[in-house]
Each structure stands twice: as C-alpha cells, then as structure tokens.
Design a protein around this nucleic acid. Structure first.
Length: 883
RNA sequence: GGGUAAUUAGCUCAGUUGGUUUAGAGCGCUGCCUUGACAGGGCAGAGGUCACAGGUUCGAAUCCUGUAUUACCCA
C-alpha cells in the first residue's frame, strides 16, 4: 500500500461520505436499543451554509456520532424552514429584477413563483452539510411547509382556538412598511442611530399668545397629534392643563392633558401625543379617550387623514413638515440626537408602530409548565446561566402575535361569514360550523371568506421536535420512540423565538419536554470580535474553507476554542491547526506502515523499553479516555477535543512512538508491540472519530485489512480499563529527566546526539527508580546516553541537576561553562528556597495544622520534605562547583 | 432604567463543591535542529503579584461586599 507524503482530504472525504451514506449508516428506525435523537435547527430553505451553521452542525454531528459509537440508536433529523418573511422578501426582490411587481400578481401566481424558487434553491444547504460530514438521517428530511408539517400547524391552530387560547385584537404592532406585514418584537432589531430632535412650538388656542414647546424625533407624526401631555406635578405647565393648543400646520385644536408617564427631564417636559403611531401614546390615548388618527398607508406613505403631503413617503414627509414648520416660524431649534431605531430583521426597513387587527396566542398558561421544567432542571441548559435569562422572559411573557400579512406560509384556517369567524381544519368543516351556527343550510363554501393572513414562521418551528416524527399523525411509532429528543443544539439568540416556544409546545401537546438538554452555542465572530456578516465582508466562505483545509480541519477549527455559550473568535489559523493535526496523524500512520512485525526474539533492552512504553501508554490512555467520557457528559466538547489533540500529538507521537521506534537502519518491530500499537492507534481513531470523522475513517482502514462493514464509524467505543497511577507518575519523572538532559545539552552547547554518561546519586529511591524495568534503557534510548549508573562518588567535571528529589550528574568531556552552571543552579536554589519558605509558613501556623484535614497537612509535610531535599542538593552542587 | 455574565500569559481561553509542589492549554514569541514518519515538523525556553479595594477562612484565581471596565439581554 502506498501512502501519499501529506494527508490529502479532498480525495478522501467524498469517498467515505458516499460509503457511509450508501451503507445506510445514517438511517435510523425504532428498535430495542436506547434512542438518541436530535432535530436540526432547520436552516432557511433558500439559505447557504455559513460559519454559524458549521459550528452548530459540527457539534450536533459530534454528539450523534458519539452516541452511535456508544451503541445507541442515533437519529439526527434534518430539514429546512420555509422562513416566511425572509423567503418572501427574496422572491419579491427576484421578481422585481425580472420586472414583475408583487402587487400585479394574484396570491396563486405569487406562490407558484415562490415554490419554483424554493425548488431551485431549496436544499442547497443540505448538500453543503454533507460536505461537512453531517451524518443526518436524510430519509427523514422534513420541511416546515411540507404536507405532514402543514397538517400539524393547522391542527395546532384549531386546537388552540378551541381551547380559547387564540384571539384577535387591535393593538399597536411593529409594522414593516416594506414587506407590509406585522413583525413580532423578536423580529425587530434596535440600534443606536444618529437623528435629530426637533423643538416645535404649539400655540394656545385661546389666543393668549402663550405656547408650549415640545421635542420630537418624528415631526411628520404631528399630523396625527391629538393631544399634548405634561407631567401633573410639573410646575412649568400646571396652569396650562385643560387648555387647548393648535397643532401646527393642520391647525387642529387638541387638549393639554396631564399624565404621570411624561418624563419631566426629557426635552422640554411636554410631549406630543400621537396615539396611532406610538405604543405609549396609544396607552395614554386609551386612558384619556383621545381620538386616534392613523396618517399612514400600509407602505408608510401619508394617507388622506394626514391632511397634507398625501402620498408622500414618511421620510420625505419629515423633511417637508420641517420646512413648513420653519416657514411658519414654529420650529424653535434642531438638535443632533442619537436614539434607538428599530429595523426589520429581514428587510431592514425602519419599523413603524401601527394600529392593526391581528391574531394572538394567549401565552400565560403555556408558559407555566415550560418555566417550571427549566427551573427544576428537568430540562438542562448548557451553560446553566441561560436559565436566568429564560426565567426573566417567561415570567414577563407577552401574548404572541402570530398573523403575518404575507402569502408565503401557512394560511390561517379561519373563515369569515360577516362578523362571525369559524376556525377549522378544512373549509368544509368551517362551512358545517357556519350552517350550525346560523341555521342557514343553503350556505356554500363561496359564502365564506378565508383569512388572507399566514402564520408566523415560528408557529411551525415551535412544533418541530413533534412534527418531524409526525407526532400529530395517526402512526405514533416514531414519536413514541424518539420523543423527547436527547439534546437541542442552537444559538442563544433564538432562546425566546424558538427554544422557549418549543418547550411550551412540548408540554401542551405531548405532555412532556421536547428535549432533555439544550446546548447553546456562541456566535461566530471574527478575531476583532465583530459579528460575521455579509456587509462587513468578514465572513469566510464556508465551502472554500472546507476545500482549503478539509472538513476535519474546519471541524477542528470550529470546535477547538468554542465553549458552550461562548463566542468563537474565528481565525484561519484554527482550521490550519486542524489540517496540521490530520497531517501529523497521517505521518504517524506512515511511520507504522514502514515497520514489519517480527517473530524474531529482540534484545532484552528493546523489550524492556517496549514493555515500559506499553504499560505507561495503556494507563495514560485510560486516564484520558475517562476524562473525555466525563467531558462528553458535561458537554465540554472543546476540552475533550483539545485533550485528545494533545494526547495524540504529545503522548502517542512524541513519546510512545519514539520509544518503540526501531533503531535507525532497521524497520522490524517485535510482533506483540506492533499489534498493541495498531490497537492503540485504532482506539484513538474511534475516540477521535466524532470530531474528525474522515481522517479517522481513512486511517482506520489503512491500519489493517478490513472486512466489509468494519468501519470506524460503526466501531465500538473502547472499554476503559484501569489507571495505574504509579506507572504514570514514574513515566512523568522519566520525561522530566530526559527533558532536563536535553535542556542542559542546549545550555552547554553539547550536541543532542553526542553520547554522554549519566550518574545518579545512590539513594534508596534512586535505586527503586533506576532498577524498574525499562527505565535505564529508556533514558539511554531517548537521551543518547552511553550508560546510566548509580554511585555514591561525586564525579568531577560533571553537570549536576535535580529531578524530583534525585540528584544526577551528566558527564561530558567538553569544557563546562562553570559560571553559567552556577547561575542556573543559584536561580533554581532561590526558587526552591522560596517554595520551602511558603510551606514552612503554612505549617508553622498552628491553626492550619489543627484545622486542615489530615491528608492536606500530610501533603504539605511531604512537599516541605521534598523541597528541603532539593535545597540541600542544590546547595551541595553549588559548593562542588566552587570547588 | 432593570437584569445577566465576564475581567487569569502578547492574543483566545481552561481552571470542576476553597487545598494537584509558587496557576494550565492553544496560538504567538525566542534559541537550537534539516538527507532518519512529519518544516503543515523536532527539541528546549521565556512570559502571569489571577482588574482593583476590603472581608470570610488555618488556607482564596475560586466564597462575600464594594469599585472600575466590558459585553450581552430586556424595557
């Protein structure tokens, strides 16, 4: 078998993905194993893969692959979201480019275009997820507007209506004048923007010549003013309350009212009231029975009720009004002013508060069990700090406006007959209700008028964990097996939009939580901490990254520094590190593949080193695997990956393989050692597989001949054996000695390969160490030593050093830099003395000795003894150096 | 205005019910190493009074209070 010089992901990744998919490894059907299920946060159907998706889906894939290796029946359901407003906005834009206006199309014609568009671009993102290695059960791919999901939505709407949890009401809503639809609070993004604060004079109607000056950022809404409000305790204005002023330009007479809501500090302390165009003004208007004058069309151009500038856009009207005020001499002053402006998440249009009739869900009763389950940790949030955020929102929950004035979405199943509304799954059923209600049996469907509005996208998403398993259908096999799902992986930014609502839906219709755990991912940002965005151009092309660094490299990069809930500062160095890691493992594979296992007996020296290496590595491996296991339980995935990275790179490649590597010029390795090494490598590949599925599968197959179906992806997670602490500690000391010898060679200008002799001061503990099987031989092999001996004699012409509490001498023919050595030893001595002092201080404190637990005191005593021993050795060495 | 979290090495972050020899990792940095699996590499090294001020404790990066700064969420 020939092996390329470097690891080459592009050839390998497609091959294995195809193999896995064709072998049906991704598909799951209920059986007698434990289920482990995840539902994907459905990306927008017309979306393309970006960095956030890669992070999010890598994490899901890691969890699902790990569950598979653990022997669970793992099922990851993929799908897409119809993304009502986002998709409709895209389709409108696309049609406009073709010269077609939405307003010229019928609902049916528009939907035909939208479906065509969806079929053309829909699902691209699902193909891109395959490139990342996502092991989704593609046979279960769902879409929020396919038949099963649509039926679920309709059923739920009808059910809510029948339970009395739906209502229609006229309120001030967030209006997107570009998409011409209502938006939920969560779909409005607020940013500080530079604007102006206009001070405008309102003259009193009594002709007294008195006036009130108000400050406003939106002078165009003056045309809809129906009052002026001041604080009841504001002495400046108290005498004016009850009088009337003349609204500028349109010269309408309106009252001056008093209300505690008014902030005396803001502007002039007097507030103009426009009930139709501000939520607070609306409240005040209700309270004081003010007239409500809506001055805008649905696209935010002025209507006839404005009285002037009719047909003009609101921003043009603002200019026109300001000019007119100035000419009329009513504009007192204009200030620069920074204030918070809400824009539509999808169209970026400035949101207009608007009075309109919409459908709402009464959330109070839904929220109750959903809040409880999270607070009682029946659903576990990772990280847990999001529980507080969640609680705050749930305790102050507001009713959910679910109607949207769009066409792309689930049309609300409500039919009107005059003032009566009938909610039913079908028009026929609505008709039957209408007949019952009216007693008029001659009614036909054409007498009923179906609601024009569609439902908020999230009204289908909140059912996702239920609807993907057809939980509202007749066949309950899947839902009973896979529900509740094991974990939800999603960004914290949609905790209210989506997570909270799924929990509510879960309890309402399944009587149970939708998922056991919620893992919140952070945002992917650039290294300057800016959000990745198209407009900033700081977001790398996801697919380009995969082709540059390999999917494994990118996955490593996404995971290596992204704790749950924490932001990931993306830098191209990260996938580069992942790619290098693949290459490192690839080269380890190459090394092993050069070897031939040998039956011939090997020398005792070689055997001793091998045996030490295997014993240590076995224990160390168990230690690391155990920790990785715990890290999975706590969702500390970055840490698990980094531990494996360092274990494979340092322990396996730098120490283990270097120890058992045959001497230069030979390539035979004792058979048992060879086979054990293959087994070690195999286990490493299985444990690393969830993180880096492709490279591990490739190496798995190169390690030994495999029968069909013997794939890394389908292998079993290794059984974790016992950890021999002594073996690990002893090896740590060996490493310390070897490292110190290398350092001393560096410092004294002695070549790393020049053979030297090592003498250890004869003490009982040194004897135990050096007489242990393989220790001497390992030191000789890894430090290029001639020999290692124990002696009571202090050699002349030697470099002394301490490891633990043992004293060593390195014998060199070369001249020793005495001054340099002295400095080094003195620095070390000073450190050791400082150390001893700090422990002495602790132990001389009687209260410590009395109060601290015995093992802690014992440990301190040992530390002190060791430290004192080191001080002794170092002092002695310096004296020897002084001759 | 209300809330939540954060502040540890040049950068990004770990640090698990307070005790792991005087705090760890990755990247970056410095020096040495190149026909031997790997320069996408090897070996070694430097670098931190854990934001600040108090307190609790035998003992604090870890717990408490306050201050400062930052980020995010809600209004």
């Amino acid at each position: 078998m020939s092996v390329s010089k470097n690891y080459n992901p592009s050839e390998i990744e497609d091959k294995w993905y195809r193999h896995w998919e064709e072998s049906g490894y991704f598909h799951s059907t209920p059986d007698d194993r434990d289920a482990y299920s995840i539902v994907i946060p459905p990306p927008n159907v017309t979306g393309i893969l970006h960095m956030g998706h890669m992070l999010n889906n890598t994490i899901q894939d890691i969890l699902i692959r790990k569950a598979r290796l653990d022997g669970k029946n793992a099922c990851w359901v993929p799908g897409t979201d119809h993304a009502s407003i986002a998709t409709e906005a895209k389709v409108v834009r696309m049609l406009r480019e073709k010269g077609i206006k939405k307003s010229d199309l019928t609902r049916e014609e528009f939907l035909k275009h939208a479906w065509e568009w969806t079929e053309e671009y829909g699902g691209i993102i699902l193909q891109q997820l395959r490139k990342l290695g996502a092991s989704c059960d593609w046979e279960r791919t769902a879409f929020t507007m396919d038949e099963v999901r649509s039926k679920s939505v309709i059923k739920v709407f009808v059910d809510l209506f029948n339970k009395g949890k739906l209502y229609r009401k006229k309120r001030i809503v967030n209006w997107d004048p570009e998409a011409k639809t209502v938006l939920s609070n969560e779909e409005v993004l607020y940013h500080e923007e530079q604007g102006h604060l206009y001070h405008v004079r309102y003259d009193l109607a009594d002709g007294s010549g008195e006036s009130v000056i108000i400050a406003t950022t939106r002078p165009e809404t003056i045309l809809g003013d129906t009052a002026i409000a001041v604080h009841p305790k504001d002495e400046r204005y108290v005498s004016l309350v009850g009088k009337r002023v003349i609204v500028p330009l349109i010269r309408r007479e309106v009252p001056i009212i008093a209300d505690e809501y008014v902030d005396r500090e803001f502007g002039t302390g007097a507030l103009k009231i426009t009930p139709a165009h501000d939520p607070n003004d609306f409240e005040i208007g209700q309270k004081h029975a003010l007239e409500t004058i809506d001055i805008f069309h649905e696209d935010a151009t002025l209507n006839e009720d404005a009285g002037m500038f009719v047909g003009m856009d609101r921003f043009a009207a603002r200019k026109a009004v300001v000019e007119a005020l100035e000419q009329a001499g009513l504009l007192v002053k204009v200030e620069e002013y920074t204030h918070s402006v809400g824009r539509s998440e999808r169209t970026n249009a400035v949101v207009e508060p608007r009075l309109s009739l919409q459908w709402y869900v009464d959330m109070k009763s839904l929220a109750e069990p959903a809040l409880k389950s999270v607070m009682e940790e029946d659903i576990r949030f990772v990280p847990p700090s999001y529980r507080n955020t969640y609680r705050h929102w749930m305790e102050n929950i507001r009713d959910w406006c679910i109607s949207r004035q769009l066409w792309w979405g689930h049309r609300i199943p409500a039919w009107y007959l005059g003032e009566e509304v009938f909610v039913a799954e079908t028009a026929e059923e609505a008709l039957r209700q209408a007949k019952d209600k009216t007693g008029n049996t001659s009614l036909t469907i054409s007498d009923l008028k179906q609601e024009e509005d569609v439902l908020d996208t999230w009204f289908s998403s909140w059912l996702w964990p239920i609807s993907v398993f057809d939980g509202f259908g007749a066949d309950k096999t899947d839902i009973q097996y896979y529900y509740p799902t094991s974990v939800l992986v999603t960004g914290w930014d949609i905790i209210f939009l989506w997570v909270a609502r799924m929990i509510m839906a879960g309890y309402e219709w399944m009587g149970d939580k939708p998922f056991q755990d919620v893992y919140f991912t952070g945002m992917v940002r650039d290294k300057k901490r800016r959000k990745m965005s198209k407009s900033l151009g700081n977001s790398p092309d996801a697919l380009q990254l995969i082709s540059d660094y390999g999917a494994d490299g990118v996955r490593f990069g996404m995971l290596s520094c992204s704790p749950a809930g924490g932001d990931l500062l993306f830098d191209e160095k990260l996938p580069g590190q992942g790619r290098n890691f693949c290459n490192k493992m690839w080269n380890a594979l190459k090394l092993i593949m050069m070897w031939t296992p040998s039956q011939e007996p090997v020398t005792e020296d070689v055997q001793a080193v091998n045996s030490l290496a295997i014993g240590w590595f076995e224990s160390r491996k168990n230690e690391v695997f155990l920790r990785v296991q715990q890290q999975f339980e706590e969702y500390r995935l970055s840490e698990a990956l980094m531990d494996l990275y360092s274990f494979i790179w340092n322990d396996f490649c730098s120490w283990y393989l270097e120890m058992i590597k045959p001497q230069y010029g030979t390539n035979t390795v004792e058979r048992t050692t060879y086979e054990t090494t293959i087994r070690f490598f195999e286990e490493l590949m299985t444990v690393l597989h969830p993180f880096m599925p492709f490279v591990t599968e490739e190496i798995w197959h190169k390690l030994r001949p495999r029968e069909a179906g013997d794939d890394c992806m389908k292998s079993s997670y290794p059984v974790i054996g016992s950890v021999d602490k002594t073996s690990i500690e002893r090896f740590e000391q060996i490493k310390d000695i070897i490292t110190k010898i290398r350092d001393l060679r560096n410092k004294n200008g002695i070549k790393q390969r020049e053979p030297l002799a090592l003498i250890a001061e004869l003490t009982p503990s040194a004897e135990v160490l050096l007489m242990s099987r393989g220790v001497k031989e390992t030191l000789i092999k890894r430090s290029a030593l001639k020999e290692v001996t124990l002696s009571e004699q202090v050699p002349s012409h030697a470099i002394a050093f301490v490891s633990g509490t043992e004293k060593f001498y390195l014998i060199s023919d070369q001249k020793i830099d005495t001054e340099g050595e002295k400095k080094r030893l003195e620095a070390e001595l000073e450190y050791a003395r400082g150390f001893v002092r700090s422990i002495e201080k602790k132990l001389s404190n009687e209260r410590f000795v009395q109060n601290a637990p015995a093992p802690v005191v014992e440990k301190e005593r040992k530390k002190l003894a060791d430290g004192q021993e080191r001080v002794r050795i170092l002092t002695e060495s310096i004296e020897q150096l002084n001759g």
